[in-house]
Write a protein that binds this DNA or RNA. Structure first.
Length: 452
RNA sequence: GGGGUCAUAGUUAAGUUGGUUAUAACGCCGGCCUGUCACGCCGGAGGGCAGGGGUUCAAGUCCCCUUGGCCCCGCCA
């Protein structure tokens, strides 16, 4: 019902799509439509399933992305492909997540990461010029995954402001504050962030922040108000003078700054401080609403260990090419293998991501086996792709942008619903048409389905 | 699966520590104005506060349950 705002957003969305098509057309890309009724794949998000009437007991899956099709297009000799296409993922919704969403999907042959990033930077420049009349300065900055996590605690860092995480483990590993020393001794880390001139934060605010970091698994949040000669802090009395000095120096702390500490596993520390950093920046008004801070994130890990599945799973997807020099690690230390994958982050939001794909069958087999996909299983699920690699696939790679998220940032919308014409609710329902809804028993019988 | 928050006229909202006929703006209806176009003036209609239960002399205002919106954790290759 807030029609003027929605209308304005949809007009910008339309201009964004038009600029995208124009750019790719001018650069020799072909737009190819790929099937929506496809095959369910094991990796990744939950699939939306569509029962087949003709082949009873079998199901199509709506695509989570046109990933496999676009790779097959490369093998077929279409060297430059793009598509503005709906994708479907049956997961819980968020303010920036819908079960059906739109991607700008791209794939290119005979290219490297550099070629793709250059081409995509050109697209961003074109889009921002066409939609907002803003000039981007290229090339866009880059940050390795390890640096992003280390300095910002997240792989989608908002670099519109500073307040970086500082690792002070070395300074406090023998601290008089036992908790820090114990965490350091057990392989954990202690990191801190500094809110400059944050004396506006009350004692009550500080207590509230403790609850905030608890969401991310932190068991506590230590803080220290920096004074001329000492700190006002519940833990000040535990520290030796040289520790206080060391920390102040490492943080470059000045009077009236507030330092926050979290000690835990690297994951919990980065998670909680990374999110606290965003939270504080909003509270303290550190974010310039007009800023456009792009960052490429590179050198993602190829796979991560999943506690729930008790095996390594792909960070990106199973067709992502590893760094060839890291291949020996595939057996010894799979978590250390770097991937030729890259995300584009804008103002702390991941707006796109992609990778160079594997184009050798033996490398693909190594990855599958590291993922504990047995040969026959891999063959059953991705046989068509393995066959295609057999016939000689060109080096290729690509990327996909989230058109909805990009539109959100450009329109400054707070919810993805504000840039979609008929959005779904938190529970994935369409209030307009009342979907999803029950169907008749006849429809079910025709499909040989029974509600359990 | 879990945590939080909200639910008042067509719409957006205000409703203090529970207390007489529940407010406002926009919209709607009627009249006046008639060089209007984000007109102006006058006068109206319209809800019993998501649904159910409870506490109380008395409940939008407190408690419980249900339903739904929204935010977050998990999940999202």
């Amino acid at each position: 019902m807030r029609r003027p705002m929605i209308q304005k957003n949809l007009f910008l969305r339309s201009r964004l799509a038009a600029a995208t098509r124009r750019y790719f057309d001018e650069n020799g890309f072909i737009e190819v439509e790929t099937p929506f009724l496809g095959k369910s794949t094991p990796e990744g998000a939950r699939d939306y399933l569509v029962p087949s009437r003709i082949n009873k007991g079998t199901f199509y899956a709506l695509p989570q992305s046109p990933q496999l099709f676009k790779q097959l297009l490369m093998v077929s000799g279409f060297d430059r492909y793009y598509q503005i296409v709906k994708c479907f993922r049956d997961e819980d919704l968020r303010a920036d997540r819908q079960p059906e969403f739109t991607q700008i999907d791209v794939e290119m042959s005979f290219i490297t990461e550099e070629d793709i990033m250059n081409m995509m930077e050109g697209l961003m420049k074109t889009i921002f010029k066409a939609c907002l009349n803003k000039e981007l300065t290229l090339p866009l900055p880059r940050l390795s995954y390890a640096d992003a996590i280390g300095r910002y605690g997240k792989d989608n860092p908002d670099v519109r402001f500073g307040m970086e995480l500082v690792d002070i483990t070395a300074i406090v590993k023998d601290s008089g504050f036992k908790l820090f020393a114990e965490v350091a001794a057990s392989g954990g880390v202690i990191k801190a962030i500094k809110a400059e001139q944050a004396s506006t934060l009350s004692r009550k605010d500080l207590d509230g922040l403790k609850d905030f970091v608890a969401i991310y698994g932190a068991k506590g949040l230590a803080w220290a108000k920096v004074n001329a000669a000492d700190w006002t802090s519940p833990i000040f009395k535990f520290f030796k003078p040289e520790e206080v000095e060391g920390i102040s120096k490492a943080m470059n702390a000045k009077e009236s700054d507030i330092i926050f500490f979290v000690a835990d596993t690297p994951r919990v520390v980065n998670d909680s401080l990374g999110n606290l950093r965003i939270n504080l920046a909003k509270k303290l008004n550190l974010i310039d609403p007009n800023a456009l801070a792009f960052t490429w994130i590179t050198e993602f890990p190829l796979m991560e260990y999943s506690e729930t599945e008790k095996r390594f799973v792909s960070t990106h997807h199973p067709f992502t090419s590893p760094f060839l020099e890291d291949l020996p690690l595939m057996i010894t230390d799979p978590g250390k293998v770097r991937a030729k994958a890259y995300d584009l982050v804008l103002n702390g939001s991941e707006i796109g991501g992609g990778s160079i794909r594997i184009h050798h069958k033996d490398v693909q087999s190594q990855v599958f086996s590291a993922l504990k996909l047995r040969d026959e299983e891999a063959r059953m699920k991705f046989g068509f792709l393995l066959d295609a690699l057999e016939y000689g696939a060109p080096p290729h790679g690509g990327l996909a942008f989230g058109l909805d998220r990009l539109t959100m940032i450009m329109t400054r919308a707070e919810s993805i619903r504000d840039v979609i014409a008929f959005p779904k609710t938190q529970k994935a329902a369409c209030l307009m048409t009342d979907a999803p809804s029950k169907v008749s028993i006849e429809q079910l019988m025709e499909l040989s389905l029974k509600i359990v």
